[in-house]
Amino acid sequence: MHNHPIETAAVAAPQLSDSGIALRLQTIAKHYGQRQVLHDINLEIKPGEFVAIVGRSGCGKSTLLRLVAGLEAYQAGAILYDGVAEDRRHDTRIMFQDSRLLPWKRVIDNVLLGLGPDAFPLAQSVLNEVGLADRAHDWPARLSGGQRQRVALARALAHQPRLLLLDEPLGALDALTRIEMHTLIERLWREHGFTALLVTHDVTEAVALADRIVLIDEGCITLNLPVPLPRPRERGKEFAALEEHVLRQVLKQNHYPQPLELTADPLWPPAGQVRWAI
């Protein structure tokens, strides 16, 4: 699948899924001034696939998401949506780490953002899907962090996106709320059939949700690993083994020599001896 020519992907897309976008990133490069953030990124995502991008902070994973979202420009390469290089902003919605709800709009009006008033029943039904129908007329300030993210999810879904981008949406939530959100996101993804691209620093989250885990390190993809576990996923032995495997890759344990900036600084122990708080 990875080496299919573009034309095949474009033709194949509607057969696979009507509701998800096929995404293809070709030799993407991005730099801010002299600093190279991403280089030679090649990635193919099937319609309706759930892909998690993991990596340390500052590895360029969020930047990649912003490029796909069309929020930032890249210097080289191409991003093809359903095989064509044109912008698909109207089909794409993002969930940010902070909910970014408009505090001066009630919950239901936040969900209606960018939609006409005739979308009211739809907004109500997506709020119902995230379990917040009874909070429709509350101000966002009255909600908990987890509830705000559920409203943000409902707001994204109200646009019936074919591509949902999740930029560490659960990063600020507590562990229990996260697990609830995992279940919710997985269920909605299966029901709606959109393509999902999740950026996270939480390897457990990636293993719990994704069909495939992509690791970005220093601007390059260093791992592209399918997750063969059946859904709904239970946290058993296989889960733990996979998690351990990905985590080792992220931490570069038993891997190639330590990165330059670490060996250059005598205060830092070699990366292999450090457990990073990522």
């Binding site: 069309g70 929020l71 902003r89 919605r93 993002i94 940010f96 970014r100 408009l102 960018g114």
Partner: peptide
């Protein structure tokens, strides 16, 4: 952040 969000929401 809100402006960026609103733009991305069309």
């Amino acid at each position: 952040g809100l402006i960026e969000m609103a733009k991305s929401y069309g």
